[in-house]
């Protein structure tokens, strides 16, 4: 191209009265232009393809992670349910009884202001509060079978308003 320009800028023979009209700068040639266009197109397509692939990939990852999250939430729910089960007073009573512990209704208090102990400690045997010590269903059934219904005699101090309104 530079050769071309050089040729054009060659001074004309003097006396012809003509001088060359300066050529329009042709900028970029036709072929390169097309090639650039093609290049841009290809680059765009490849870019788009890569983007799409990436998005697809990520959406796949997302799906997988979502599935994993759901599965883990299921696991969490199951574990929470197990903990809730183990926290119940009945279960704690069962475990405590298995360890040989018995409920003690005779509390002793420490007054934190004075440091004094309020109340008297008492040894307990587990039968102080009926039926609060845990018993397995089998134990209960055995006791129910053995228990003879005891009807005690009526004592005063309690009214039986059955005399009227019948």
């Amino acid at each position: 191209m530079s050769a071309l320009i050089d040729e054009r800028q060659k001074p004309q023979e003097p006396g012809s009265g003509l001088r060359p009209v300066p050529a329009v700068q042709p900028g970029i040639g036709r072929l390169p232009f097309l090639l650039i266009l093609a290049g841009v197109l290809v680059a765009g397509l490849v870019g788009l393809l890569m983007l799409q692939t990436r998005v697809q990939e990520q959406s796949f990852d997302l799906r997988q992670l979502q599935t994993q999250a759901t599965q883990l939430s299921y696991k969490q729910a199951q574990l929470e349910a197990e903990v809730q089960q183990k926290e119940t007073p009945a279960e704690i009573a069962r475990q405590a009884t298995a360890l040989g512990m018995v409920p003690n209704p005779y509390g002793v208090y420490i007054d934190v202001r004075t440091g004094s102990v309020v109340g008297t400690q008492k040894a307990v045997h587990g039968n102080e509060v009926p039926n609060i010590t845990y018993k397995s269903p089998e134990q209960k059934a055995a006791e129910a079978a053995a228990a003879a219904p005891a009807a005690e005699a009526a004592q005063p101090g309690d009214s039986t308003p059955q005399e009227t309104n019948q």
């Binding site: 219904p149 005891a150 009807a151 005690e152 005699a153 009526a154 004592q155 101090g157 309690d158 039986t160």
Partner: peptide, 13 residues
């Protein structure tokens, strides 16, 4: 309640 019927006997304990 069957047997003892008094509140002081049945429910008080």
């Amino acid at each position: 309640p069957q047997g003892a019927i008094q509140g002081s006997q049945v429910a008080a304990p």
